[in-house]
Simulated assay, not measured.
Amino acid sequence: MHKQNFWGYLFIMPFLIGLLIFTAYPFVYSFYLTFTDWDMFNPPKWIGLNNWSFTLKQEQFWYSVRNVFYFALIFVPLQAFIALIIAYVLNQSIRAKGFFRAVYFLPVITPWVAGGLLWKWLLDSKFGLVNTLLGEMGIGPFQYLDHPYWWIVIGILAVVSVWKGMGSAMIILLAGMQSISKDLLEAAEIDGATRWKKFSRIVFPLVSPMVFLVLITSSIASFQAFDVFLVMLDSPNIVKDELLTTNILIYRDAFLLFKMGSASAMSWTLFLFILIITLFQKQFEKRWVHYD
C-alpha cells in the first residue's frame, strides 16, 4: 500500500511542481504586489492601499468595467443561443454533417490576429467589403469600428467574438445532445410530440447542464476580453478611453508603463468581479438546470 502511494505521488509530482511554480506562487505574489510600487527593475516598495485606491478612483477603470459588462450582455446570450440552435440542427439527420461541423468550428482554431484583421478589413468604413456590398444595393455607407457611439463599436466586437467562440460552445452542446437516447425521442414522436415540444421538453432540459457550462465559461471569457479589442482597435495606446477593457488597462500598466502594482490591483479587482458574477449565476442554477 505504501509502495503504491509512493509511485502515485511520484507520478503527480511534475504536475504539482508546475502548479506551485506557475499558478499558486504567481497568484499569491500578485496579491502582494497590489500593496507595492514595482517597475520590474527595482525592488518592490510597500505603499499600502494606494494601488487599490487609485484603481477605484480611476475613470478609465470604470469605463472598462462598463464596457466588459455591456460586452458580456451581448456576447454571452447571443453565443449560447446561436450555438444551441446550430448544435440542434447538426444533430439531425442531414447531409454533410461532418463538413458543417468543421466549418462552424474553424473560427475557433483561427488565430485572433488573423481573424481580427480580416474583420477589421471587412468593416472598414471606406474600403471594407461590407460597405461595398451595401453600396451596390444603394445602402450606406456606415461607420463600424470608428463609430462615435461606444456602444455600437463594442456591440460589433461582441458579434465578432460570437463568430470566434461559437464553435467551441457548439461542440459542448452537440456532445450533450448526442448522449440523449434516441429511444426517448422516438417515443415522444410516437406520442405526437412536435419538433418544438421535443426540443423544449426533452432536448433542452437534458442539455441544460451543458448550456449552463457555456454560460459560465462565456461570461468569464467576456470579462477577460482582450484580443478582439487589441487587434481590431489597434494598440492599447490608441484605444479611446470609452472603448477600453480591463485587460487592456492591465496590459498597458504592466508591460508598457511598468506599473505592476497598479496592474495587479486591477487584476484582483477583475477577479472579484468575475467571482461575484459566477456566484450570482450559480444562485439560479437549480431553477432551470436539470442533472437527473
Rank of each mutant, 00 (worst) to 15 (best):
I86N: 01
K259Q: 14
V239F: 01
E242P: 02
I250M: 11
D292K: 13
A193G: 11
F255V: 08
L133F: 13
K259E: 12
I86Y: 00
L270K: 06
T217P: 09
L244P: 05
K240V: 00
M170D: 03
H290T: 12
K45G: 07
W196I: 12
I47S: 07
V103E: 07
I86Q: 03
P148K: 14
S262R: 13
G128E: 01
A265I: 07
K57C: 00
D253I: 02
H147R: 11
W119K: 03
L84A: 14
V103K: 07
Q283Y: 07
S208Y: 09
E136Q: 15
Y32A: 14
S93Y: 06
T110G: 03
L56T: 05
S93I: 06
G261C: 08
T55E: 00
E136K: 15
N5M: 13
Y25F: 15
L118T: 14
M260S: 11
L185M: 14
I82Q: 00
V76D: 04
W121P: 08
V207S: 03
M210G: 02
K164H: 15
F81R: 04
K198I: 07
T110E: 01
V207R: 10
L90V: 09
F15W: 12
V162S: 06
L185D: 08
W268P: 08
E59M: 04
F280P: 05
W38F: 13
L244V: 08
W62V: 05
L233P: 09
L84K: 09
S181L: 03
S262Q: 09
